[in-house]
Design a protein around this nucleic acid. Structure first.
Lengths: 371, 371
DNA sequence: GAAAGCTCCGAAACCGGTTTCGGCAACCCT
DNA sequence: AGGGTTGCCGAAACCGGTTTCGGAGCTTTC
């Protein structure tokens, strides 16, 4: 506008310093500065030092959008969360965001978060963020056995990484906690305590984790050389209410289980309710093991024995994998399976009979008796 | 590269459609298309329609970075959260993010979230996100009486909006819940029930909300024509533990309060512990009112009477204010004060004496007696 | 009927970077 | 000495938009 706009602007010093400012201050061209800062091999070491120094001195920070327009990368990872009523008061979200943010920051990336009210909304946001290139890729939490988000992004060739697995994972990078093995481990622990009839409350079959946990239960039975009995598998339960109902169903049989394994803690909380009604004391008359380690778990009486997940670490690992995926690594090489941590508290008890620990433990292993 | 690169690219159709594609398909220049889509007045209505139509048909989505480089706006709002142990299992975060995200989406903006481990970290992130222009402005939650973030951003001329107020709010846009009035309201309610000695457990004086709640307590006393008594104000408490300690201190006096008002629910939970120790039944021997409405509140026996905050709405309003601030509106015009909602549950009781409700209520208002 | 004004759009500059291309100088090798 | 590398950097194109400027064509005005 004004002929002396330049002077005015630099005088105010509110104007940001551009790559040209750095170049001018050194009598070089901006292409040299750019290549020097980005580690191109055709820049001499002495020049590179001078440039780096000048950039530092002038406080030059490249505009990420300006870079993005040419490089095609905004260095931002997308996260679309569909907040269920379940998750609201769980530390899950905070821990997860913390993990993602930390790993992203370390790599000089940022995290773009959006909340969705429905599946449709999720789709809309995925498309929009990718289309406008607000993000370079997505972390998809809570994967379904057959997940439409996967189809969409695979089709559109947008990088993504799953938190959890999916039935058809070709072209998918993922990170997951091995809850299958955890479930099997739980069955074996219970079997070792002498339990022969171990009930199971699954979590349905829509989410992949739910299916895997059911498979883990079966695998555990097989490993413990126990027969699978259909009447010991309750209807799926995801809430306290449903958990109580499921527990009532399998406990009210002629030959009830002496132990129950739950796919999720929330259902396990309901098992306490059902046990109370039936006059069973958990940890003594009924052993209980679950999975997730929600905060309520240790507040129960007796405290719930469960498997804990390091959510923060999950967020961090997922971020790392996604960034590598975006940079071009093959999805098949970007898969990690982490272990859940067994948290022994009171609810798994000591075996199918009442009484002090040691004794029972021995009695049980000899007799293999039932409650 | 290749002479026929253009053909190859359009054939693959994985190439994004640019403004040039739209222009070419209409035989116009890209400047016309740009102005048509952005509502410039020097474009005829017929042309505008044709352009809009073609853009729609071709699926044109402007690249937000490319726009940003010229307009200076990335349409992204920044949120840096320092997750305290307190907040982890509260729905606060989820609700807040939900509110921000929803309002941002509605305005076609996005939200960039980062978590910080410390104050230093927060500063670093504020600078980085602003410098690289990853965001256009910030929402600052949990404002301090004297908040260094405010100084930094005000100095750097980066738009921001506070969730909560601050001592010196010149140049600050903000949204807050009027907890001061809520506290005063609580005192008056208690006074109306006949209480003359109303204790207070404050939340310190570092956060602005804490200071305002203390002022509200005093204002309430004045309105109820009750004298302020220093011995009725306990040491600040932010946790259950601290709340219990504070409650013990003011209850173990020769002339203890018959009601307690807490600045935060977390401290109020501790009051239950202290009351139990002293053999006082809350809601009968001791009235209790608090503020925040954390999930545990309704699980207490009796359930805690408190003031609820609409966190989701707060996030949404803050976002709206910030966007307007970024667009240039004066900060002084961007200030909103919302009301907290009184949630009457069991803990506030019926007055300083024991007994059924109605009766006591009348006795009390006549005698003004103490427990 | 010519000057003036208005409507609408094309041409080109611009934003702040990245990347390609080409060429100068120095060095190496017969 | 001459030809071929090699190292290093400048010039310019490019990315995908936005914004300024100017001018063609039409209408209005006196």
């Amino acid at each position: 506008m004004e002929p002396n706009a330049f002077k005015v602007r630099t005088a105010l010093r509110r104007q940001r310093v551009t790559i040209m400012d750095v170049a001018d201050s050194l009598g070089m061209t901006k292409s040299t500065v750019s290549r020097a800062l980005n580690g191109y091999p055709d820049i001499s070491e002495s020049t590179r030092l001078k440039v780096r120094d000048a950039a530092e001195r002038l406080g030059y920070r490249p505009l990420s959008n300006a870079q993005a327009i040419r490089t095609g990368r905004v260095r931002s990872i997308g996260l679309i969360i569909q907040i269920s009523e379940y998750d609201r008061h769980r530390p899950f979200l905070a821990d997860f965001l913390d993990g993602v943010s930390e790993a992203a920051s370390a790599a000089d990336w940022t995290m773009t978060v959006a909340t969705a009210a429905s599946d449709t909304d999720t789709f809309r946001l995925l498309c929009k963020l990718a289309d406008e290139r607000k993000v370079d890729g997505f972390i998809l939490p809570r994967t379904l056995v057959d997940d439409p988000r996967v189809h969409l992004l695979r089709e559109a060739d947008v990088p993504f990484v799953l938190y959890g697995r999916t039935a058809d994972d070709h072209g998918c990078a993922w990170f997951d906690i091995d809850s299958e093995t955890a479930m099997a481990d739980a069955v074996m622990r219970l079997a070792e305590l002498g339990h022969e009839r171990i009930g199971f409350i699954p979590a349905g079959d829509r989410y992949m984790y739910a299916r895997l946990r059911s498979e883990g239960y079966r695998a555990g039975l097989k490993a413990a050389k126990l027969p699978f009995a259909a009447e010991l598998v309750a209807p799926p339960a995801l809430s306290r209410q449903e958990g109580a109902n499921s527990a009532r169903l399998i406990l009210n049989q002629e030959n009830p289980p002496t132990a129950i394994l739950c796919a999720v803690d929330r259902a396990a909380i309901g098992v306490y309710d059902a046990a109370k009604e039936l006059g069973l004391q958990i940890g003594r008359d009924l052993s209980l093991i679950s999975y997730d380690d929600i905060p309520e778990a240790e507040l129960m009486t007796p405290p719930l024995t469960t498997y804990a997940v390091d959510t923060r670490r999950a967020g961090a690992r997922l971020t790392d994998l996604l960034i590598r995926r975006i940079k071009g690594e093959a999805p098949e090489k970007l898969r990690e399976l982490d272990r859940a941590r067994f948290v022994a508290r009171g609810s798994h008890g000591f075996g199918p009979s009442a009484g002090p620990a040691k004794e029972i433990n021995e009695t049980v292993s000899k007799s293999g008796g039932k409650a």
